[in-house]
């Protein structure tokens, strides 16, 4: 069990998070650039001192600012896979993997034997004597993983493990990484800005924005009920915030929508762009949410077009290219918007 309360001020960053991770759990810390993800990882590693807080892993106290405890990085039972991997360029793959064991006092012979078995396990047998610069991105990543795992850490930290790879290599490496992470039974924390990576690798997501945890939960929970603009954008839904009273949601900014969900109080409301219908004239009939706007941006994505609508109720709609022609949509052109009450998902904020 990792219990981390971490407060660090570093330049413009004000990081203040509290996260508990259960034994055997894989957690992805997801957030935009500058959210403080890497600082969070460095604080867990002991490379950045805390301004306040306490970090414990089971019975081991890593940091406790109130009692002045700070365990040096080299004394923490951790393994870190850094962004860019940071394989020592002057050492072979084998020597890189053996480094941690040597530093922890193993004999050269034992360290090399253990390193060899780790490289074999990660299908790197033929690259034992290779220098890091001779390795492909995926190979380097596995060497970095082997190096971090070789010391048998109880906490494994990975900082953007796929960011250094070509897009073409990423899929295969992600699958491999998932398999290797599954075979390790300690706590695993993956830092990433890539939602696909987070969802693919982790049991639980922690969304970090501007130094704060804004949401945490399983990938399904987080994607179903986004609680920030960042997550909503990642998932690709329209997110609104307001106060609900018996199906009537008064939004911040003045507009209001009707929902079929029976939640009251401070709420989030989401609408999938596909559920947003566009019309040339005011539609008649059942939709209870109808308003007027004008198209502000057209974004063609294959057989779909995302249309940004400005007006009293800004929203994104997703329609077919045929619909765009039919509606004679042009940027700045007037358009009527309707959303069925049943397509609006409302949940407590």
């Amino acid at each position: 069990m990792l219990r981390a309360q971490i407060a660090v001020r570093l330049g413009t960053l004000d990081l203040d998070v509290a996260i508990d991770v259960a034994a055997g759990e894989i957690v992805a810390v997801l957030g935009p650039n500058g959210a403080g993800k890497t600082t969070f990882l460095r604080a867990l590693s002991g490379l950045v001192p805390l301004d306040a807080g306490r970090v414990t892993l089971d019975e081991v106290v890593f940091d406790d600012v109130s009692t002045g405890i700070h365990l040096a990085p080299e004394r923490r039972p951790i393994g870190v896979v850094f962004q860019d991997y940071l394989l020592f360029p002057h050492l072979s793959a084998l020597e890189n993997v053996a480094f941690g064991l040597r530093a922890r006092g193993a004999s050269t012979k034992n360290a090399r034997a253990a390193a060899e078995s780790w490289l074999d396990r990660l299908d790197l047998g033929p690259y034992k004597e290779a220098r890091p610069r001779a390795l492909s991105g995926g190979q380097a990543q596995r060497v970095a993983l082997a190096r971090a795992l070789a010391t048998e850490p109880r906490l494994l930290l990975l900082d953007e493990p796929l960011a250094a790879l070509d897009a073409s290599a990423r899929g295969a490496v992600r699958r491999d990484l998932r398999r290797h992470l599954a075979s390790f039974d300690g706590i695993r924390i993956v830092i990433t800005h890539d939602p696909l990576e987070a969802v693919a690798l982790a049991d639980r997501l922690v969304i970090l924005e501007s130094g704060r945890v804004v949401q945490t939960g399983s990938p399904a929970e987080v994607t179903r009920r986004p609680r920030s603009r960042y997550v909503a954008d990642l998932v690709g839904v329209n997110l609104f915030r307001g106060i609900a009273t018996a199906g009537h949601v008064a939004l911040r900014g003045g507009a209001a929508i009707q929902s079929a969900d029976g939640v009251d109080g401070e709420v989030f409301a989401t609408v999938h762009p596909r559920a947003v219908a566009l019309h040339r004239a005011r539609p008649e009939g059942s939709p209870r949410n109808v308003w007027r706007g004008h198209a502000s941006a057209l974004d063609f994505q294959g057989d779909r077009v995302r249309v940004g609508i400005e007006g009293e109720m800004p929203i994104v709609a997703e329609v077919t290219p045929a619909a765009v022609r039919e509606l004679d949509l042009a940027e700045g052109g007037e358009v009527w918007v309707s959303v069925k009450a049943t397509e609006i998902s409302v949940y407590p904020a």
Binding site: S45, A72, F88, F99
Partner: peptide
């Protein structure tokens, strides 16, 4: 030099 290599070494247990 990239000091992060030193960080990497420390997390591997090197004093």
């Amino acid at each position: 030099m990239d000091r992060r290599y030193e960080d990497a070494a420390r997390t591997l247990g090197a004093g």
